[in-house]
């Protein structure tokens, strides 16, 4: 009986551990970067890869001490005409999928650069996800 109880406790602990580890595995952000930009009323963009976890998630907003306002945007090209869409609903990151934020597509838009983005340095960007919570990354400042 004691043996069974011990086994149950062990099983319970393993399950708790498993639950904890899966909960902490949120969206993984890799290769965050942006182009150099002086500090002025100018705008900039940050790019990165968002690797989905095992649950559907969504990048809902972002902030950065280097920008007055940060928004999520998407560039669309149609017949050679470029248009930029503001994404008030954010960027969905489906489970198990990788979403690329890259030049000419989805991007984190930095409106009003307040701290110069200097090549070779980095800028802090805080990403707010629906499920994964707040993820802070350092975007490398480079040309491409």
């Amino acid at each position: 009986m004691k043996m069974i109880r011990h086994t149950l406790v062990v099983i319970a602990l393993v399950m708790v551990a498993a639950a904890c580890s899966s909960a902490s595995e949120g969206v993984e952000v890799s290769d965050p970067w942006g182009r150099p930009s002086p500090s002025s009323a100018s705008n900039a963009a940050f790019y990165m890869q968002l690797e989905g976890s095992d649950t559907d998630d969504r990048l809902v907003s972002a902030e950065s001490p280097a920008c007055q306002v940060v928004e999520l945007h998407e560039t669309q090209m149609s017949d050679g005409v470029m248009s930029m869409q503001f994404l008030p609903e954010g960027i969905p990151v489906p489970a198990g999928e990788t979403v690329s934020l890259e030049p000419g597509g989805l991007h984190v838009m930095c409106l009003g650069v307040t701290e110069a983005l200097v090549e070779g340095e980095s800028a802090t960007v805080q990403l707010q996800f629906e499920e994964s919570g707040l993820v802070t990354v350092d975007a490398e400042i480079r040309q491409s």
Partner: peptide
């Protein structure tokens, strides 16, 4: 210049 993506 306000264009942060395609123009740069």
């Amino acid at each position: 210049t306000f264009c942060p993506d395609v123009c740069p």
